[in-house]
Design a protein around this nucleic acid. Structure first.
Lengths: 211, 211
DNA sequence: ATCATTATGAACCGTTTGGTTCATGGACGC
DNA sequence: GCGTCCATGAACCAAACGGTTCATAATGAT
């Protein structure tokens, strides 16, 4: 909501997603923020990634981001809004560079699969794949974010497969690879040896190269 | 805890997992229970399956099972205990029959994959696969239940693959199939058309038969 | 019919939850 | 330095949570 005071327009309430809160467009200056939207998201993502939406409290988010509740609620409508923004930023950020690297082919695909390892012990698998579990309790927007990211990945996978010679349809193989990726990611949540995860990838690559 | 009253031994507190509460072994009869352990679990499973552990409240469980809180807490230590018992019952119940049906082979494997569809709109995918997401917030026992069930499934998958002729190692193919199954299950949580799910299975079967 | 014994369900409890309010702090324009 | 305005953080709130207690209901044994 914008309000008119003394003939000047001021911003109040949560800013729209596109606006950088570090910029002051109208009115005289006030106390500057200590945080910016992207920084908060980048620090919130690991928390949601590890614990999911339901298990994450706003206290966790305060500690992880270093931003107080009132700050968070000035930038985001509620916990759900912050979650969706985090998920969207994650989905837009990850995956594409690897699958567009030259030369296209099985090498890119194997490197893509390795993304499924996650970052470290706290961020296992893939945030987007993990989030599929909770879709039942989240707004439809969550599914749309994930779906559109998957479609983008599928297109890139197909291009990489077409760069190799294969008797089978590229989109069919891409389908299998992506579903395998989902399985690889979700299974990363159980702490089994890294060796068995490596073997999984090796196995799929060996299978897929034979087609 | 057992206590001695008037020279007779009575059971009080939650009964051990193996004991059927419908049987009265010692002492004189009291008011009979209206529920039994397995019945509660079978009604709790769909709730946890759909909503996961964190999103399920004991109110939900009361409504779904028809058993009051005090009843639930007399049979189970706490919500976590009920969840683990549900997960264990689910894991022990499902999957094995399909993979032991004669004749062993690709037919069984395809039927196994189709288990990943789930039951209906509320029980999507697989309860055990869904639960992998929440392992970070659950006791180690949860992972053990899932892991041992997976090992059992892997053995059965291998036997079915060995029944077919294949140039590649059966355990390698089983690994790929199981990971694909995980991915298929978790992706069932997003409500995309059934057609695309069917295609996924067809695609994998076509790939795997070629090996 | 009475007693002993147990299951039941509603009331209750302390804690934690997501979310809001408001007095204070701090930066800028003048 | 003063006034204006906004970000900040702690206090605050109602609702919901997991879990417990206890008077009561319901059964079998005698």
């Amino acid at each position: 909501m914008n309000r008119l005071v003394h003939g000047r327009i001021y911003c109040s309430g949560p800013l729209a997603a596109g606006n950088r809160s570090v910029f002051y467009c109208w009115g005289s200056m006030g106390r500057p923020k200590k945080f910016n939207r992207e920084g908060v998201l980048d620090r919130a993502i690991p928390v949601f990634w590890k614990q999911g939406f339901a298990d994450t409290t706003v206290q966790h988010l305060e500690q992880a981001t270093g931003v107080n509740k009132s700050g968070l609620y000035s930038e985001f409508k509620d916990k759900e809004d912050l979650f969706l923004a985090s998920l969207e930023r994650y989905a837009q950020t990850r995956g594409a560079e690897i699958l567009t690297a030259q030369p296209l082919g099985w090498g890119n695909i194997e490197r893509f699969l390795r993304l499924g390892f996650g970052c470290d012990d706290d961020q296992r698998g893939c945030f987007a794949v993990n989030s599929m579990r909770e879709l039942a309790g989240l707004p439809a927007e969550a599914q749309e974010i994930i779906s559109s990211a998957q479609q983008k990945l599928t297109r890139l996978l197909i291009k990489n497969i077409e760069a190799e010679e294969s008797r089978l349809d590229a989109s069919m193989i891409a389908d299998v690879v992506l579903t395998f990726f989902h399985g690889f990611c979700i299974a990363q949540n159980l702490k089994s040896g890294k060796a068995s995860s490596e073997r999984k990838i090796k196995n799929l690559m060996q299978v897929v190269r034979k087609l």
